[in-house]
Structures are given as C-alpha cells and as structure tokens.
Design a protein around this nucleic acid. Structure first.
Lengths: 343, 343
DNA sequence: TCGTATTAATGAAACGATTCAAAACAACCA
DNA sequence: TGGTTGTTTTGAATCGTTTCATTAATACGA
C-alpha cells in the first residue's frame, strides 16, 4: 500500500458520496446513525487519515501558529514555548516552532517558511527591528503578537515582563531584610533587561535615605563573569564590602557565590546577602539555595496565544500590551541578618 | 488586501500563463530572460508567496520531517534538535518539533498530527513501545528513525549512544590517573542508561587487579540527590573513602562536589577525583571544573536525518543502527593525584 | 522563401478535502 | 393518495499549485 487512502476511497468502500464522508468527519449530526457507522468502519478498514494539505487549501488557512524564539535552549523560552503549545492545543491549533538563535537571517527564513505554510498568526520574540515585516504580514491577514518585548499598544499586541518591577522587587527585598550597602552586578547596560533591572533597583534604594547602591559591571552574564566580580570583592577590606548583592541573572549570582564561599572568609547570607534573577533550576540546589526573581513564563506563553486569538476574531485591530510582574522567590541566600529588624 | 495573491493573479498581472509562473519558480532555465523578469516583477509587486498547502497537495507529500523528543528542555535533546534542523535545512526540509514530555498520549497525538501533515518521515525518541505504530506508518510510506534508542537493525534504523562505552571511558580515566578505590554514584539501575554506564565502569575496573568499585545508590539524578550521597561520604573515616568517584550524570556530580568542598576536609582532585556524565554547561563553571563524558548530540541529530534520507531513497528497507561513542572531557576535577604515575 | 529543428509558452487536468444547492427520502396528516 | 415538512444524501465546484502534452515562436540553413 503505497498511496494512502483518500476520502474518495472511503466513499467507494462505504458506498456513499464523498460529501457524506466529509460530513461524518466534520458534522456528525447531519449523518444518520446507520451510514455513520458504515463510513467509520470503512475509515478504519482503509486506515484513512485526513490530508491536512487539501484541507487547508480549501479552508484558505492552516490550523497552525508560528512561534519564533531567540533560543530554545534558554529555559525561559522553553517554558514559554510549552505553555503556548498547551494553550494552542486547547483551541485546536498546533504550534510550529522556530529558533532564530539571535540571528536575523534565520529569523527571516522562518517568517518566510511560516508565510508559505499560511500560519494563522505569528508569535515572535524578535532579534532586530521586524516592524516592517510584521506590518506586511498583517496586511496579508496574518496577525502577530510580540513576545518578551513591550510594543506600542496602538500598533501591536505584545506580552512582556516588567524588568524594572523585578529589579525593584529584588532590591526592596534586600532592604527589607536589613541590608543597606547594596551592589548591583550586571553585564553591559546596553542590554535592555539589564538596564531596566538596575533602574528598578535604584528606585528601591532611593526610598531609603540611608541606603546606597554600587554598580559592578560584569563581562557578560555567565557563571565565570560572576566569579570574576566575586574575586574582586573578596580582595576588598571588610569596611568596603556591600552587605547585599543583586545580580542581573542567576548565573552571575552563582558565580559570585562560588568566589565568596570558596575563600571561606565571607558567609552567605550572614555577611553578604545574594539574590539573582530568573529562578533557574540550579538556584534551588546551589550550595546556599539562591533567592531569585521568577518570571511568569507560563502566563506569557498562554497570554500570547490568547492575544493572537483576539486579533484573529475581530476584524478591526484593537491591540493590547500585557505586562506581567515577576515574583520574588525567597531562599536561604537572603535570610535576614542576625539582629536586624526586617520590616 | 485580504486574500493573498495566487499564482493566477501573478499570471494575469504579468500577462502570461499560470504554467509559466510555475516554471519561473521551479525551472527558471525553461523560461526566457525577458518573461522571467516580467514575472518576477509581478511577484514582487503583488507580494506573492507560494501556498505550501496547494504545493504539497499536488506533490502528495510535504517537505517536513516530524521530530518527537522526550523533553525539549533537556540540553541533550535541545542540541539534537538543533543539529537535526540544520541538517534538514540543508536538504530543503523543515522540522516539525513535538515534545512528548515522557507522556505516551502526547506522543500519540503528535504522531497523529504529523500523519495528517503528511510528513516525509519521522524521528522519534519514544516514550513506550511504539513499534506497532511505526510499522503502520511505514506501510503508509512514512519511514521512521529511532533516536537515542538502540533498535533491532533488521527492523528499524536508529541512532544511539553507547552508554557502556561511556561508563568504561570514565572509569578507565580515573584508573589511568592513578585512582584505585572507585565509587559509582547513580540512580535506580532500572534506568537503562544508568545500568549501562555502571556496567562499562565495572568492565574497566576488572581490567586492574588492584582496583575496586563500590556502588552508591542515589535517590534520583539531581543535585540534591548527589549532595545526600556526598554527605554520607564525608562522615566516613579516611581509610574508608574512595579516591575516585564516577557519577551517572553531571547533576549528581555537582551535588557530590558541593558536599565535599563545603566541609573543607576533602579536596578535589587531590583527595578524591570526580567525573560526571553529559558535560552540561555548568560542568565547566563548577567550583572545581568538572571532568565529564560528552555525548555527540550534533552527530546524533545529523545522522538521524541522514538515515531518514536513506530510507526515503531506497524502496526496499535496509536499516542501519548507528551507535556513537561518547567522548572524554578532562578538566580539573580529575587532575592526576600528586606522585601518581598515570600511564 | 520555405522547411525543419529548437526553444518558449500555454492551459487543461489532477491532487484531496469542504461546501452547498439540489435531489432523494422519510414521516406525517388530511 | 397527495401534499407538506423535515431529514439525509448527493456530487459538482472550488481552493492554488504542478505537470505535461500541445501549440506558438524563433532560429537556421538551403
């Protein structure tokens, strides 16, 4: 059996018209019990499987949604993807996944591919400026929702996380547990996320007249970069040290933690409290379990699908920019210092 | 502009027949320079994009390959996926990715979906026993290659990694660097991978008459499980300790490392050498950079696509089971003990 | 200028599902 | 029995490509 059975084969086998087979598949109520059974038996006997290509050719659109992320290996996106897939499945759509790997040309290739596939809509965490491309897609009836990027609500729908709020949350937590000499460790502030988190932290520190915030630039966002910063810290005199450190992500924090704990002169959290960002799996199983800021990735993925559904339903575009607030996860690395009066 | 332009629109706009437009797209050589230019201009002006559904309806098959993995969040699979995507792109196919999440029903849903999409073939890292399903697919002309699972070569093609060899490699390395009292730390040996790695290690140890191997059961394969095992070790008397530990994966090894380094009584690698498995990103940035066994994930993904291509080309099935050998990655955690004569 | 060989362009048919107006059938009452 | 209403079933038309047998155009030599 080389060619798979078509609806016509099923119709012949069951001695009915093709339209009837189609009705059994799509509008079972229109078909009498008797013929329905005959048709279903024929389907079973022939091992008939719907040809989706023919289906969507007729329908004019597919039942798939394109999703392009910057890096599927990044747990943040992995989680967003999974939530989006689940939400899409609920409304009967499947997700086509593309990984741009921060590469604009790969991104462009995926948009081309998805356009050929006539996806219902596109979710994209863009590499560069894709507004022109998105506008063009919309003209052709393919709505787009931006993911992990705040967009001008009058023009596009988007889902994003408030990094400023996350930074505030982290710094506020350090202050609330009695720390006053804070330090921010983060890569180049040209990265929006880093800049926003720093800004939020500054906002929190300004609320306390006796608190200070020192900014320590890191060379990237890796464990090794964090260790370098940590090594600089341990060489300082006791009076020059911060008592609370907020790292722009968990990898940096783990690196800092390594330096501080390796030398055995500084204890976490007694001498220095430490908090990261992202709440990666490793945070909980660090030598000292790491406090962190968790991003609502499931909500991001789910909401992105919902916004897309909204765009698909209404003809006139009424876009929404949904901004989520991250969540503080407290662990041992920021346990209150002895004798401090946490408010 | 609601409906996107079709090949017919392009033909009208350029005052040629539809067949000519199709030829410009598929066989540019058959078309004269002049008309080719006219058609291309029309395509550009109308923003024409091929409708892939119509295309594959005509062709009878798609240009996509289905890939179902157990967990996209697992770096092992992430890497396999990326390699498969790249290899597929080279031969002009795209990969549809499905994440079964170790759930047989999700797996089954993806197989259904891919069958409706008329994928050219299927790569699958199966949850349960899918042989019946695979046989059925093959009858309908959809070949399948098993990924990360060794299959009976007379029946199926597969790509897998030799865990026994990996275990041997790890233990042999510990022996070669002078260690003699080895320990294996690993979860339930009901997991095939764990059992095979242990078996390989035993094989290496048997080669040295003066070497011993102790098996320490861990409760799962996590950092915390490793730390528990490590805590038991540090309570032992000096004479009862192993001098080389092989952990069934890197997470366990990192946990063991945490326990040993936290107490400051035992040094890595001077007192105890430590080697893991998988070579995750964290291995290199551990407090003591961790030696590990790297699995050739890129080769797995690439080869899976190649085997699928072989199955697609030849009508009569001549399957191959390709087994890859993992690779030793030496880092500081297994640096030779002082004064030992590594051979 | 004519015939022939070569190259280019044409357009109907096919792929397989869905849709929908029309036909067939069934049920019911007068 | 005939008419009316409601329920099932039918099958041609359609979606947008590609294919391929035909036809048209062009080039070339005698």
């Amino acid at each position: 059996m080389n060619r798979s059975a078509s609806i016509k084969d099923v119709a012949n086998h069951a001695s009915v018209a093709v339209g009837t087979v189609s009705n059994v598949l799509n509008y079972p109520d229109r078909v009498s019990q008797r013929t329905k059974e005959r048709v279903l038996r024929a389907i079973d006997e022939l091992g008939f499987v719907r040809n989706d290509a023919a289906r969507q050719l007729r329908a004019g659109h597919s039942r798939t949604i394109g999703l392009i992320v910057l890096d599927v290996g990044n747990p943040f996106f992995t989680s967003v993807v999974r939530a989006a897939e689940d939400a899409a499945a609920l409304q009967g759509s499947a997700v086509l996944l593309g990984d741009s790997g921060h590469d604009a040309s790969r991104e462009s290739n995926y948009i081309d591919l998805f356009q050929e596939q006539r996806v219902q809509g596109l979710l994209i965490s863009p590499v560069g400026d894709v507004t022109a491309r998105i506008d063009q897609l919309r003209e052709r009836g393919v709505p787009t929702v931006l993911v992990d990027r705040l967009a001008d609500e009058s023009k596009y729908s988007s889902v994003s996380v408030d990094d400023d709020a996350g930074g505030y949350l982290a710094a506020r937590h350090l202050l609330d547990t009695g720390r006053r000499r804070l330090a921010f460790v983060g890569g180049p502030t040209s990265i929006r996320q880093v800049a926003d988190r720093l800004q939020g932290a500054e906002r929190a520190v300004k609320e306390e007249s006796d608190a200070t915030l020192e900014v320590l630039d890191s060379d990237g966002q890796t464990v090794l970069a964090g260790r370098s910063v940590g090594n600089l810290l341990v060489e300082r005199g006791p009076g020059e040290l911060p008592d609370g450190i907020f790292c722009a992500n968990d990898l940096l924090a783990l690196g800092v933690m390594q330096s501080l704990t390796m030398t055995h002169t500084l204890r976490i959290p007694e001498d220095i409290a430490l908090i990261g960002y992202d709440d990666i799996d490793f945070a909980v199983s660090a030598v000292v379990p790491l406090s962190s800021i968790r991003q609502p990735t499931e909500a991001l993925g789910r909401t992105a699908i919902e916004l897309l559904a909204e765009e698909l339903e209404s003809e006139n575009p009424k876009h929404r920019a949904v901004i989520f607030t991250p969540e503080l996860v407290v662990r041992q690395s920021t346990a209150p210092a002895k004798g401090s009066s946490a408010r």
